[in-house]
Each structure stands twice: as structure tokens, then as C-alpha cells.
Design a protein around this nucleic acid. Structure first.
Lengths: 217, 217
DNA sequence: CTGCATCCGGGCCGATACTG
DNA sequence: CAGTATCGGCCCGGATGCAG
């Protein structure tokens, strides 16, 4: 990307990660190291030359390095992209209330949603393990010592198993839908949902009321 | 911008504010309502048609509205862009250690820097007023009740007056430079600098050591 | 088969000129 | 003052090619 040529930290940051697709690459690498092909699968619609170019730029800027298995890994500085990426996710969360026709979905993207809804540390949180199957490979959400962690793969001894369409699962996690509404949308629920409510961030707002979703383009 | 077509909060957010220049427009509007012409002056290098187009998009998305004087103002949802913008500024802060030849500077951009270095609430902060003149109109930084506020215009009864080149001023505020080093770079200092150290965020790191600034393009 | 590089059409970006 | 019009060029997106 052409530099903004502004002596301002926001502009400098965008000089590095402001290109189209770049922050979505960071979103994937924040979950863990990735091969080139894994990134391609996680970024449907992105041209292969663009992915290669973005990765080169990020490598040159010191955000990403290659590991011994030639996977792409965030540097310590790159790991700190977690904060702006999560802040953007929190800001964009109201737009998730409806899933647009044709929107792609990958189960690992629940990691961002989980970070947004259950982020931070809260000693009052109960220990809890949930396994989630939303349109793909199962992922596990685990609350322990006040912190909610996320990883891909099934859970060994879950307190809760959710499976169904992604938008209904997210509505349930976000607290926008209750058990009956979610089941009506095709979610199958095994276990008790009530601990979810105690695990949400204190500042989490259930509804998307802050942004009016307009239909007039 | 073309939509990413991903059912993910980060992608949805970037569908709205991921376009080139858009987050810099938000940076300006976060300081306060702006006329079209003020935005143009604050965004050197941005084409006029692009500014008009971005403002239309933001208005359509519900991020911006026009007030009675036809100024552009953030909606409540738009105000919440403060978090992602500040997070980006914090992430990009290490890149501010050197000012590149040709980088533009506006005194109001100190607002972002002040937010990054002195953001949040800390009851231990002493009350303090500083007037800063960095290459332009004077701006005022005021600490009261644990919170540091920023506004444009001179201070009425400052404890500290700083004037000089922007990079040296920022180095001083960030704690990268001491009084002698800053004065050697042309900063004139009236008053006591020591309260600044007590006002910085507890997690503020002085140096840019986290990102190696490489010269090999 | 993975990990890119090349090519090409279309659209976005950047600069300047122009208008109510 | 607040935008609109226009045009060259670069970036983006999709398909294809190719080397290890």
C-alpha cells in the first residue's frame, strides 16, 4: 500500500496492515501458525498473488516470520494485533445479527466471536467446557480460572454441546436468542446454557440496537 | 469496498471501515464534528472525490450523520470506533520513533498520541495542564480526576508549556527522550516534566524495541 | 499436491479541473 | 465552501501455469 505519509500512529499502523485482506490474514494467524494453503482456504475469494504479496509485505515489516516447517507465524509485535483486531470485531459485532446470503463461514472464526463476547479475565466466571459444531469441524471453548480459551478440535468432557447453523449458534452465545428460539432455528443443545450468561463480559450488550441496519443501500 | 462476504465480525467491520482513508476520517471525527473542508485539510493527499465517496458510504452505513450546520458527526455507533482506532494507534506507536522525511503533521493528531500514552483512568494521576505547540495551532492536555483529556486551543493556566518539532515532543511525552535530549532537538520547555511520568499508562512501554525498524525495504 | 508466479480485464485510487 | 467530473494508472480479482 502507498504510505499515507502522515506522522500519526494510526496512519503508520495502516501503512502496515491497512491493505485489503491484511487484517484478515492477521485474524487467521492470531489463532495459530498457518501454511500458505490453510490461509488460502480460510480466505475465500482472495487471489493467490495477493496473498503471497501481503505475506511478503508482512514479513518485510516484521509482523510475520516463517518457522522451520515454512509456516507463517506472528512475531511478538504481530501478536499484539490481537487488540486492534478484537476491537474491530467488537465494533462489527452488531452486524452479525443477520447472516447475509452467500456469506462464507469457517468454524475457526468463532474464535473471534468468543473473544468478543467472553474476552478478558473475570474471576467470577464458572469453569465450563463447551463443544461447538457450526457448519464444520468441531471447536472447543473452555472457561477456567476466569479466562475463556478457544481451540479447534472436539472437547473431551464438555458440559455443553451445541450444533447447528452458525448464525443461530452465535445468537445463542451472544445472548440474542434463548433456548427455544435457537432450537427453532435448528440448533441442537445438549447440556445447560445458563453458565453462558455468567461468562459474558460485563460490558457486553445483547442487541444490535446501536447500529440501525438499513435496507436502503 | 467490495464485501468480503464472510460471516465474521472482523470482516463485517472491515466491510464498513476497511476502505483506504476511511479509518483516518474516523480519527478526525473522533476529535469532533468536522466540515468537509476541515477534513480535506486534515487528510493531505486524499482526493476530493474519494472523501465525498467515503463520507457517503459512512453516512449510508449509519456511522456518520450531518448536523444542522451540515457538519459531519459520528453516530453513537461511530463513536465506538474510538476503541479500534486507539488500539491501532497503540500498535503503530513503535513506528513513531522516527519521523520520515515528508511525513505530514497536524497538531490535532497529538490527540491520538495522548490517548495512547495517557489513556484510561488512573486515580493516582496528579492534576496537570500542559499546552503543546508542535508545528501548528496550540493544543491543551489536561489531567483531572485520573483522566487525561485533550482539546485544541491554548491553555489558560498551564503547568507546562512545550514547543518544538513534533517528533521530539512525542518522544518527550512517550518518555523516550529526557529533558536534555529533547532540548537538544529544539524543544523549549517551560515548567516541570516530572508529572508526565506519573501520568503514563502503567502498561506503556517506552521504547520501540518490539518492532525492529528495518532499512532493507 | 502444495506453494507460489504470471497474465489480463475491470474497478478503485490519485491528481487536477471545474461548478453551484 | 462543498462537492462533481474526468482521466491515467495501479491495484484487485479470477484463471491459469509451473516448479519442487
Amino acid at each position: 500500500m502507498r504510505s499515507y505519509n502522515q506522522y500519526c500512529a494510526v496512519a503508520k499502523a495502516l501503512d502496515v496492515v491497512g491493505d485489503r485482506w491484511t487484517l484478515l490474514i492477521a485474524r487467521e494467524l492470531l489463532i495459530g501458525p498457518c501454511r500458505y494453503g490453510e490461509l488460502q482456504q480460510s480466505l475465500p475469494g482472495m487471489a493467490s498473488n495477493l496473498l503471497a504479496s501481503r505475506l511478503r509485505n508482512l514479513e518485510g515489516a516484521g509482523v510475520v516470520v516463517r518457522d522451520a516447517e515454512s509456516r507463517y507465524v506472528l512475531t511478538p509485535w504481530g501478536e499484539h494485533l490481537a487488540e486492534p483486531v478484537q476491537a474491530l470485531a467488537r465494533w462489527g459485532a452488531p452486524l452479525m445479527s443477520v447472516r447475509k446470503e452467500g456469506d462464507a463461514f469457517r468454524s475457526q472464526w468463532l474464535a473471534a466471536a468468543v473473544g468478543v463476547i467472553f474476552g478478558g479475565v473475570d474471576p467470577g466466571r464458572p469453569p465450563f467446557v463447551a463443544e461447538i459444531r457450526a457448519d464444520g469441524a468441531p471447536v472447543t471453548m473452555e472457561s477456567s480460572q476466569g479466562r475463556v480459551q478457544f481451540r479447534s478440535g472436539p472437547a473431551s468432557a464438555p458440559n455443553l454441546v451445541l450444533s447447528g447453523p452458525p448464525d443461530a449458534i452465535i445468537g445463542l452465545l451472544a445472548g440474542r436468542l434463548n433456548q427455544d428460539e435457537a432450537e427453532a432455528l435448528g440448533v441442537s443443545i445438549l447440556g445447560d446454557l445458563h453458565p453462558l450468561a455468567e461468562m459474558r463480559r460485563a460490558d457486553w450488550l445483547t442487541g444490535p440496537e446501536i447500529c440501525q441496519v438499513e435496507s436502503t443501500s
